[in-house]
Amino acid sequence: MSTEVTDATFEETVLKSDKPVLVDFWAPWCGPCRMVSPIVDQIAEENTEKLKVVKVNTDENLETASKYGITSIPALYVFKDGEVAKSIIGARPKPALEDELSDFI
């Protein structure tokens, strides 16, 4: 299971990370988020060297979600050196996600 990050810990954990960070923006009421979550976990486990993977519950951390203009979830954002380096909106099968994340894994 990947780390849950909050509005309070986002800067420290994500923006100041040495490694690229994949952030899974989700919410408990979002069906597609539940479907993609285990796939994100698998990608996290298989790429621990290269990529840090965290989750942001947008229901409880609206500040971070709105700062990055999240209006559709699941939204998977990769942050590199504090900047958004990639954004993927909507649930995708594992091979398609790996393909989109190929620069980082």
Binding site: W29, P32, T58, T71, I73
Partner: peptide
Amino acid sequence: CATCDGFF
């Protein structure tokens, strides 16, 4: 998806 995104 209104149920996913309406909240925003």
